[in-house]
């Protein structure tokens, strides 16, 4: 039940934000759609957030979003620079990076933000949470990712422990 609420309430809010209409008929339609979609959802274990830790969760989440936003901007600019360079300075390859967390959600979120950051893209993840990452520049990326990953691991473990 609480699992269903966890999915259908955000869906309902997103529906209202997208339609921008709070007439009763629209509210009813939105609620029906949200409940219907949450019934169609495959069974999976969403981590339940302990209400006592909610402020900490939100704070870590907001910091995480800002870090990811910075990564997106730097990623776009540096990849654009590489593409426009007449010499095309790339040294591509796949390197293994341990995510440092065993939780599936934590690994997935790490992989997500790595794929958004400059010149890196996760190709595969194995059962131990090792992320095989394709890099445009193998030499520079390895140390940079290790640093960024320890910061992320810190924040993510605060969100999902």
């Amino acid at each position: 039940m609480s699992q269903m609420l966890q999915v259908s309430v955000p869906l309902f809010i997103v529906y209202l934000a997208l339609t921008g209409n709070v007439e009763p008929s629209n509210l009813v339609i939105g609620a029906l759609i949200a409940v219907g979609v949450s019934l169609l959802r495959p069974k999976m274990d969403l981590p339940l957030i302990n209400p006592k830790r909610l402020p900490q969760f939100l704070w870590a989440g907001i910091r995480y979003i800002f870090i990811v936003a910075g990564d997106v901007i730097r990623g776009g600019i540096s990849t654009a620079r590489i593409v426009l360079d007449p010499k095309l300075p790339i040294n591509p390859g796949i390197i293994a990076i341990p995510s440092g967390t065993r939780s599936e959600l934590g690994t997935a979120l790490s992989a997500h933000s790595i794929s958004l950051s400059p010149g890196e893209m996760v190709v595969a993840i194995d059962d131990d949470g090792v992320m095989y990452t394709h890099c445009l520049n193998v030499d520079g990326s390895e140390r940079m990712i290790a640093n960024a990953q320890s910061l992320r691991k810190n924040l993510l473990s605060r969100m999902f422990e």
């Binding site: 591509p92 390859g93 796949i94």
Partner: peptide, 8 residues
């Protein structure tokens, strides 16, 4: 894939 290193 282009490139020498392939940990995968």
């Amino acid at each position: 894939l282009v490139g020498k290193r392939d940990d995968l």
